[in-house]
Design a protein around this nucleic acid. Sequence first.
RNA 1: GGGUCGGUAGCGAAGUGGUCAAACGCACCUGGCUGUAAACCAGGCUCCUAUGGAUUCGGGGGUUCGACUCCCUCCCGGCCCA
Length: 321
Amino acid sequence: MAVNPLADSEKLPVVFLMGPTASGKTDLAISLTQNTACEIISVDSAMIYREMDIGTAKPNADELARAPHHLINIRNPDESYSVAEFCQDANQLIDNIHARNKIPLLVGGTIMYFHALQFGINELPAANQELRERMNRIGKTQGWNVLHQKLTQVDPESAAKIHPNDSQRIQRALEVYDLTGVKLSSYHANQNLVRADISILNIGLFPHQREQLHANIAHRFDNMLEQGVVEELIALRQKWQLNMHMPSMRCIGYRQLWSYIENDIDREQMRDQAIAATRQLAKRQLTWLRHYPETKLIDPYISSTEQIKLEIIHQLQPTNC
RNA sequence: GGGUCGGUAGCGAAGUGGUCAAACGCACCUGGCUGUAAACCAGGCUCCUAUGGAUUCGGGGGUUCGACUCCCUCCCGGCCCA
């Protein structure tokens, strides 16, 4: 029952290549650019940061020269980004790439970004730092259940869906209400804006052998250590005014390295914790993929890169001739 | 060889006669996810023919209505003395 969304020739093709960390997405994508007229758009909430190269497993300079990636190195480590910004950026790039008669190849592991791009998001107010800080103070001193109760007053529908411990979502729901006077649940009741002019081919790299994935993850982190992630973070801390609450420093690896540099944990703990956190990330990504609609799942440990490439190229044929 | 402390679920660690299949933390598994998402959160985690049952707390034996908890013995580990 493989759906072929690209059969409709009226629509322009877009490829989504999704997968958990350490599943070989980047290599596959770069390889694909050699065979098809496509341009890569990175879908990765960590690779957006400049100077965070080793720890985010960015393609190296060589690879980037061979296969340019859009949406990499677009923020400084003390800045932030959001799904909505991603959708804007990605949509614009998709148009540009189509104008060049190429196929946009979106590659990455931030599955929520893919999801938002494909299925749309509502028009919501942007984050408000002051408000968040104020709520954080209340949450810490009085407990988040106080804020959850407040949410129950102003937006019972959202409150019912959000667990009293889920500080981040309580915060956002209240933020939306405070900023606009409109309930988040009311926004959600509106239709999402989904573009109708493209057809998306969803490919998910899905390693079924968890043990092998775990081994790859451990191996990859050891490589990062060898390549000097520790030094990378030390340099970042010298150059920028960073703190561990910034989105960039909450990235896996960096947060553990931060504690290590601060002498809160030793090197072995740092390594173990970073690797475990990466495994947990991969598991969450797999959860997304298992339930992502109309996606062709391919096991990268069973199919070779060549086979997967052929499969993707095959799926693209109908509109590509 | 003598003394002493200790051996609890994958790991760490509570429990010291019943309310214990065994707190708590970690790992692991499953799931959720609309402007922080590499984030944030939830559930599960001995086995089974499962709103109940069976077998667990180093091994064996004993005391007791009843033991992870008390006694004996054996094995293993740490520390101290020789």
